[in-house]
Amino acid sequence: MLSRLRGLFGRGNGQHGETRVRQKEAGPRSPWKTWGNKLSWGRLRTTEEAPFQISTSTVQEEQMKKIEKLTSRLHNMTRKRNELRGILANYTNKDLINRLNFELEMLKLEHKQVMSDLQKLPIEITDALDKCMGLIEETESFR
């Protein structure tokens, strides 16, 4: 099959030799030929890169969909956060007022107890002084 193809193209068994003659020996290339080669390579590249650009656009579309999903999730989370902050603020204010009232009541009770202890203190001091005097008299009587 390969020999048949060579026959069709006329290259079988080295009949025609090389189809391109090397031009490096001929001398330096002109800038116009170099520019023309670059232009033709650029055309080849753009035709070859077309499928890659299509896949790039699908990747970009997928990324845009992901961004939209994440944006919607962010908005939902922000809304829920704000709602929870409102609930917490109400709870904290009520709780703070309740705690302050409770602490105030506790301080009032503690104040009453301290004041009653202060009122009892002189009486306790006089009782302790009387007991000490009685003990002193007892110790002197034993001597």
Rank of each mutant, 00 (worst) to 15 (best):
E49M: 12
S40W: 02
E62P: 01
T47E: 15
E49S: 09
Q53N: 12
W35Q: 01
G42E: 05
T46I: 08
I54Y: 04
G42Y: 09
R45V: 01
S57L: 07
A50C: 04
S55R: 15
S55D: 10
K65L: 03
L39G: 01
P28Y: 09
R29S: 08
K33I: 09
Q60L: 15
K65H: 02
E62Y: 09
E49D: 09
Q60C: 14
A50F: 01
Q63T: 01
G36V: 10
Q53W: 06
R43H: 11
S30Y: 00
S40D: 09
N37Y: 10
G42D: 02
P51A: 08
S40Q: 03
S57E: 04
M64L: 09
F52K: 05
T34C: 03
Q60R: 09
E62K: 12
W35R: 11
W32F: 06
L44Q: 03
R45D: 06
A50V: 00
R43L: 13
W35C: 03
K65D: 13
S55N: 11
L44W: 12
P28H: 05
A50L: 02
I54R: 10
G42R: 08
P51C: 02
S55P: 04
P28C: 00
R43M: 13
S30A: 08
K65N: 12
T47N: 03
A50G: 02
W35P: 00
R45G: 05
E48C: 07
I54G: 04
L39S: 00
W35E: 05
K33P: 03
T58G: 09
G36F: 13
T58F: 02
P51L: 06
T47L: 14
E48W: 13
P51G: 12
W35Y: 07
K33T: 03
W41D: 10
E61L: 14
R45A: 06
T46S: 11
I54D: 07
W32Q: 13
